[in-house]
Design a protein around this nucleic acid. Structure first.
Lengths: 286, 286
DNA sequence: ATCCATTAATGCAAAATACGCATTAATAAA
DNA sequence: TTTATTAATGCGTATTTTGCATTAATGGAT
């Protein structure tokens, strides 16, 4: 069943006149007659009651007119929507990002995206570092913003930002400036650090940091969640190393002492992802 | 856009394999390829991401698969429904009938109809005799069951039943049998009769009845509503002439004395009514 | 009652479209 | 490197659709 036929039918059901309708839909009366005939054959029912003089809808025709009008406009909407998805103006994209940047660069990124593609549905999720690649490969997320460098096959990666690490201490703490730090004094501290993952470049940087002071820190708690760490530091349970992006979070009672170590923020995506939404975002934002 | 194409698409979206799909839908792989291609052209978007080895849905294709599945099954349901309307198995019909038969032949008629066409909507109304033809012509009712013979143009008519007139009296009344009736004794009675309409064949029969006894009845009240008349007779306010169909109504305290006058029940319908529901009912019931 | 104007249906040939067969080209696996 | 698999494509054929011209039915006018 051709949708065009249904459109012809609807036009005729409006006009109830073959000639006028045929002219309106730009075919000949003969063609219209046959279109309606074959539509009736296909459905196995009569749409119009007609003699050589009058055209009238049958009850079944009347019913179909009403229903088809609705269905056709629904279909039209669906097709339009699909086209938008195809053009990357619509659709959904799921982005994983670390908590650390949710107050610094994430707002900028999101503002840019929503301004350019107001129809775009964005889903933000937080995923443990170790799961990010899996999630990416299994289409659970489309874009991973991370501090880890990946050399995985099939995953493309790009650096978009970098910020410094900072030592995070309570305001009352004796460490005030970078110059206050020394191996001696650092050794005496209790640290709250992220989980030490195998192959995580972020934790490697932190390890490198401690190596530069030439000691192994006393870590009493591991957490990947920055907000947890910050809360613990504020309560005086220990001090932490965090990216200074956290300074953008409103965190009274804390002091960030910048360290001469940089941590990169990268975006990862599937190399074979042809979702135009993604292409647009990559083009736009990064 | 041909719905068949969409079906091909859905099959391919399931299998993600041209050969297998082509075999399944009974066309060649070549034809399937072109169907999909022209569908994509028509929509102006890509449905599948494909190389010579793999077939995969694009986001737009995925979206359309989901939506089209729903739409197609809706359309199928609609077409089935329309077919039922066409066959007269669905739809609505409005029937006017006299009160007198609501306990005798109406239940049989309705039982037959609903058994044969359970999906059919039947609307029962009671219409004054004088309005029946108007209502029929103006499409307010589709079928009029009546005791009046019509010779109106455009109205078809058929006799479906006939019953006797009966004299209705209270049980205590001195009239017990037909033999008790005489012109003398009838003259003394007060009568409750239906409205004496011009051209109503029913009231003509009643007039003929009185003519056979050669007197003019003392009518103190006219009513077209049998249940009203019966209530009045039971209270002893007078006696009445009614079709003996009323004997089927449970009416204690009354005696029906059959009279040798018959009254026909007819059905009337529009000659040009091509509603298949009507045709079915006429075929089935009468 | 007859004629006329209107209008849906239809025969036919041309045009457009769809189809199948055979082949090609790309690619993953052996 | 070879082979098997598989989507795309060229081409001739079959089918379908279209437009033109004509027919046939019908309601309205005279």
């Amino acid at each position: 069943m051709d949708l065009q036929r249904i459109k012809y039918f609807l036009a005729l059901a409006e006009q109830l006149h073959y000639w006028k309708t045929a002219e309106k839909v730009n075919i000949t009366q003969s063609a219209l007659t046959r279109q309606i005939q074959s539509l009736e054959n296909e459905l196995g029912l009569q749409l119009f009651e007609r003699n050589k003089r009058n055209v009238k809808l049958t009850p079944a025709g009347k019913f179909l007119k009403e229903k088809w009008e609705v269905e056709l406009s629904e279909l039209e909407y669906i097709h339009q929507f699909a086209k938008q998805i195809y053009l990357g103006e619509r659709g959904t994209i799921t982005i994983a990002h670390p908590d650390s940047i949710s107050a610094s660069i994430m707002p900028d990124i999101l503002a840019k995206i929503t301004q350019a593609f107001p129809q775009l549905q964005i889903k933000l999720v937080q995923v443990l570092y170790e799961n990010q690649l899996d999630f990416l490969k299994n289409y659970k997320i489309d874009l991973a913003i991370t501090r880890d460098i990946t050399s995985e096959q099939g995953i493309k990666s790009k650096k978009i930002y970098s910020d410094h690490l900072a030592l995070v201490v309570p305001l009352a703490h004796s460490f005030k400036r970078f110059e206050d730090l020394s191996t001696e004094r650092l050794k005496a501290q209790k640290f709250i650090l992220p989980t030490k993952d195998e192959g995580s470049s972020y934790s490697e940087i932190i390890q490198a940091l401690f190596k530069s002071y030439d000691f192994v820190p006393d870590v009493f708690l591991h957490s990947e969640f920055g907000s947890t760490i910050i809360a613990l530091v504020r309560k005086g349970l220990g001090i932490a190393i965090l990216p200074d992006s956290y300074m953008h979070h409103q965190s009274p009672g804390l002091r960030f002492i910048p360290l001469p170590f940089k941590t990169d923020i990268l975006i990862n995506w599937r190399a074979d992802d042809h979702n135009p939404v993604l292409a647009n975002i990559l083009k736009l934002v990064f």
